[in-house]
Write a protein that binds this DNA or RNA. Structure first.
Lengths: 268, 268
DNA sequence: CAACGTTGTATTGTCATTAATACAAATAAA
DNA sequence: TTTATTTGTATTAATGACAATACAACGTTG
């Protein structure tokens, strides 16, 4: 685990530690300013001052806050902002290619079997259709970035091997298999890390994750890939630029595809 | 609190309850199938069987699982899926207008003061510029949906009143104030609910939230609004349709603006 | 029927956490 | 300087969640 490893896994101190760390990373507490006193924190988090104390000690050990006796705890400059990955949705997949050069993928599991209920219906597969299920962890800069579960119809998946999956991005393999990728639908929400995912990503269970589900279809509307991606929230961001355009009488927000205002789209 | 209210707020049982509920809602456990045994669950979550037991009882009370002595616990059909709000990014703001009719906004705080560091730099405001800070909770169908914090430069914000904010969408007020909204930048990630946000949204602290930050600029590139929105992950989803298009030699994913394949973009 | 796995129930000891202190040391504000 | 607030440290007792265990009741499977 990255930080606060000495705190017991399921304990209250760790819970407070995680909440405080999350708040700090989100800029809820302004940098340089001082945190509320230990007594105040104990009240807001409904724990004793001793518990808050252990959480703050862990944060101080991580270099996220400075503790000064007599004064209080102050927020340190976020030195961790350096290693953040962000993605523009419109270039999401090509970007992962680009990233493929600086990232590693670890294949956790690989099997063929009947498609789960939700996956089959989302892809528009007949019931009981067999799919290849692969679970991978993508590492960026040596540290875990995402937990990926992909489902591909067996007929397509038989065109590449297990070894291919560990090295080549999936969409490349699909194209190589003659699949004419056409449309995709994405759904983004937030989740908590379950124990198994947490272990694979080397974080605490209950850490916030960005959950992205994507169904990719070919020209005939057949589902060729179902992706369930879980991104570490403190490492990954989904960025998008919008521009207001007139469309008939209504005005809409149209996404800006190409020219990015700030060029830090790929890797900061 | 919606469910599992009898479980102690910071205790392990509630933590397991939240993780299990989150897993169930994400379809990690297939509907109709049976959950792992209490002993197995106790091992994976690193707690005693008694703790798992209390979590399962709470889930059963919520109607999410069925417990049958001798057999095991089975996943119930997700009857809650009915009340889900999703948004297509390209129509995000107009849609909130539409929603404005069926949703209520509760104004939690309203004040003028110097802009926080991160907000000022993101908006491109001179240091120490005064902004109006408003915190609102948006209710959908009587239940909390999002926790919104908005920052607007004082010169613009003086054009509307506190009462306006409680009734009219902010972007409307801006347009009424003569602001020519032009571009926006959004950044999406995941977070945990802090105690104060959790209380306002009527969920447990540590619940997963979708965090959206948006900077809106006018034609001259001046920041006119900074929005920090926290959406309840189990109620809100960000949906997007993409289409593969050739762009020079590279192929990109272009967002589909208008015609939606499945019309359930607004409110399901 | 018999064996096995599962939930229901009860018991008991342990340990983390809380609660209620108290006081020293450092800092900040009056 | 004086006062108030903060962290650092220590102590003690009570509470309650938790772990570990055992066994009964029930269901499933063979």
């Amino acid at each position: 685990m990255s930080g606060g490893a000495n705190l017991p896994e399921g304990g209250k101190a760790r819970r407070v530690y995680l909440l405080l760390r999350d708040a700090l990373q989100n800029g809820a507490y302004v940098a340089g300013a001082s945190l509320p006193g230990e007594q105040r924190l104990a009240e807001t988090y409904s724990v004793s001052r001793a518990t808050v104390r252990r959480a703050l000690d862990a944060l101080a050990a991580d270099g996220m806050v400075d503790k000064r006796t007599g004064s209080g705890s102050t927020v340190r400059a976020p030195a961790n902002a350096a290693s953040t990955v962000s993605a523009d949705f419109s270039t999401l997949i090509p970007q992962l290619t680009l990233m493929g050069q600086s990232t590693t993928a670890r294949l956790l599991s690989f099997a063929y079997g009947p498609a789960p209920e939700g996956v089959a219906s989302a892809m528009g597969l007949p019931g009981g259709e067999r799919v290849q299920t692969a679970v991978r962890v993508r590492l960026f800069d040596g540290k875990p970035l995402s937990y990926l579960t992909t489902y591909v119809p067996e007929s397509i998946a038989r065109n590449y091997t297990e070894a291919d999956l560990a090295t080549t991005p999936l969409y490349r393999l699909l194209e190589r298999s003659g699949v004419k990728v056409d449309t995709a639908h994405q759904s983004v929400t937030a989740t908590l890390a379950s124990p198994d995912v947490a272990e694979a990503l080397d974080v605490s269970a209950g850490s916030p994750l960005l959950s992205l589900r994507r169904v990719v279809r070919d020209k005939d509307g057949r589902g060729v890939e179902y992706l369930w991606a879980l991104y570490l929230a403190d490492v990954f961001r989904l960025e998008m630029n919008l521009s207001r355009v007139a469309q008939g009488s209504e005005r809409h927000w149209a996404p800006v595809i190409g020219g990015r205002a700030n060029g830090e789209t790929t890797i900061q």
